[in-house]
Design a protein around this nucleic acid. Sequence first.
DNA 1: CCTTGCATGTAATGGGTTACATGATTTA
DNA 2: TAAATCATGTAACCCATTACATGCAAGG
Lengths: 175, 175
Amino acid sequence: MSLRHAVLGLLAELDGGSGYDLMKMFELSLGNVWSANQSQVYGELGKLTADGLIQVTAEGPRGRKEYGVTGEGREELRRWLLEEEPKQARRDATLLRVFFLGQLDPDQAQAYLRGRADDMGRRAEELAALQGQIDWGDDNLSVYGRLAMEYGRRFMAMRREWAEWAENELKARES
Amino acid sequence: MSLRHAVLGLLAELDGGSGYDLMKMFELSLGNVWSANQSQVYGELGKLTADGLIQVTAEGPRGRKEYGVTGEGREELRRWLLEEEPKQARRDATLLRVFFLGQLDPDQAQAYLRGRADDMGRRAEELAALQGQIDWGDDNLSVYGRLAMEYGRRFMAMRREWAEWAENELKARES
DNA sequence: CCTTGCATGTAATGGGTTACATGATTTA
DNA sequence: TAAATCATGTAACCCATTACATGCAAGG
């Protein structure tokens, strides 16, 4: 049930916006942390409106509808932030494969881990470069988005280091 | 489509087993990396059988059916391991909240991060303790499961460090 | 004999992905 | 005037979760 709060949160931070505006945000920033597609966004806007957590505040050209968070919506957002325990989805496609690497030859298993290490190294560098380029503003989404981005960088680095360690563990077993 | 390969992989590693056997594996080891419930397991066994990737190899008491991987199934497992790029699900409930911490008072935001750091620290310790206790065997699932567990430990540690760093970043901004 | 564990299945519901479908407005 | 962008919506399908439903077998 977190898509609901992603939409609610964005509308709260942006002081309102259209479904199209939200989609842009999902595409270029929030989506790295919680992805959503167009169908989902419009669907959720409808449900949130029906539940009274947001409302249409203006209508523009091309059928554009601008939404704003209601008092009830703000309350729900705070409740979610403060009271609901974030529960981790235990699903990792890379790690699932690791469990079954015994089905491959040892050198293929090592190559898999090497591939992960390289991939993660690449991504960590890309993120680090991006981090240097961006001019962070002083608004909430910039301040907290920056924290999230640093998390991403550390995550990639950690995964790279682990994959290299794991590759060496397998090499050590070969004797 | 990875549940399919989780089931296929387990049957390959265990040299066959029943739905019940697989559920046990999901509960106590594989589930930390790819979770699945009873309905899913039995449903997937049916689909895999219909597609010829596994087959019933024996029937036991209480309607027990033992499944084994077919040649086609083994082929599909290798293909998945070697050729399919693991794609990461970009969904993290903890981090999603971080984006919207600006909706809280600064001290509440810091408390959220502190809570995460504590939680992760606790889990990292639990995992480290578990790691020390387990007698790892020499079978594939033990060898590779050990790698996955070390990943979990490092992951928790990284998250703890990040949450502490983020908390300090917020404190530094207060001036 | 009673509890625990073994064992399988189905139905309802909700969320996510992909594809389809349409059209207005701006800009080059 | 053509292409790009803005803008919304629906339908079909698949996957995951929860709940329901049943019954046999082994051990204390």
